[in-house]
Design a binder for these strands. Structure first.
Lengths: 195, 195
DNA sequence: CGTCTATTTGAATGTACTCAAAAGCGGTGG
DNA sequence: CCACCGCTTTTGAGTACATTCAAATAGACG
């Protein structure tokens, strides 16, 4: 059973769809279920889908030349995930996007999205809004990156996204915040104050 | 003389405007000239304009509780600048936006932009595209922030934006890259290799 | 030319990383 | 259901990277 209601509900927060538009929209979508540790995006392949998360959790990360992982984004219920540099510009991906839990996803393909945009211009507005929100979100993250030290970034994240922090492995969170997993462990155990 | 041709040219890279639309669009705009060191956005006031840079250079920065400056963004010819968290969400600004050179700007007010979007829906597409591009840009910046050390971030920036690096004060660049101005000075003079 | 601001330089300090080893935990198969 | 294996987290010691502070030098602007 294809249940598109979560994404419809999400979209109606931003634009109002006629029934017919809704039907056309969902015709472009496909449901995808993935299991923990599965990848939906891999380096060198163009990222051809924008992915909405119905349930579960994923992360997007880069592996650098030293083999270090750097988490670019997390995604949980009601978030979108992709290698957007690859998706928007039709370039080979540089990121992995991996399921951290068994997840239910709804995907739209790049070409379908283009068609959607030209047939139902309302979606221009929808994507404008979520892109702007995403932009503002990333700007806040950059600010935290450049203005706070490791412990403050951790505190800040815990405060804003306790739900995410509780669900993702510690090494993934550390690599998102931009420091080593050992340091995160030390921060968590306060082995800092007592010299 | 109000010369809107730069912004029109910029916009036509993304959407095609009828003459009438163009006229209506420019009726929403206003030209603003600022001198070096002038501010166009200040903390605690809502940032009411989206600013296109015809010529000159600006930067957006935060001053933290210790009095340290952290540059969030630079803007030069053909870029946009604002405190977007303030602009989009109608909250008091947290950033300063300051002219680094005498500059010519074209501004649109928030309400005018909303009206523009409803009267000429094409602009939804325009803002969608530039927001997506901005999103992808910030994602690359975050990656560089979390995966590179100070020297590498500097090299990376020099490579991508030599024009900006050449025009902005060193302390501003350092605070953009997320380290101290002293360190940037040392990196520039390679007082690193030779112990 | 003089003043104010920005950059450079060096020494001391602190923050975070690396490496290695131990402990904890979860999933899987016997 | 328990035992084992592999992966994640913890801990500590040593090191590297970056900051802070202070002082000197260089540059910009009126």
């Amino acid at each position: 059973m294809d249940d598109f209601s979560p994404i419809i509900k999400y979209i109606s927060k931003h634009i109002l769809l006629e029934e017919e538009e809704e039907a056309r929209f969902t015709s472009y979508l496909r449901i995808k279920k993935v299991r923990k540790k599965q990848y939906i995006v891999q380096p060198d392949f163009v990222c051809n889908h924008r992915t909405y998360i119905v349930s579960g959790a994923l992360r997007a990360y880069l592996v650098d030349d030293r083999g270090q992982e750097h988490t670019v984004a997390f995604g949980i219920e009601d978030w979108w995930i992709a290698d957007f540099n690859s998706y928007f510009f039709r370039q080979p991906a540089t990121l992995f996007v991996e399921a951290l839990e068994d997840s239910i996803l709804i995907q739209i393909e790049y070409n379908a999205e283009q068609e959607l945009l030209s047939t139902i211009p309302k979606f221009e507005k929808f994507y404008r809004i979520i892109s702007q929100n995403g932009y503002a979100f990333l700007q806040r993250r950059i600010l935290s990156n450049i203005s706070l030290n490791a412990e403050q970034r951790y505190e800040d994240f815990m405060q804003r996204y306790p739900d995410i922090a509780a669900r993702v492995p510690q090494y993934a969170l550390a690599s998102y915040l931009g420091f080593s997993t050992e340091l995160l462990s030390k921060i968590r155990n306060n082995r800092l104050k007592k010299r």
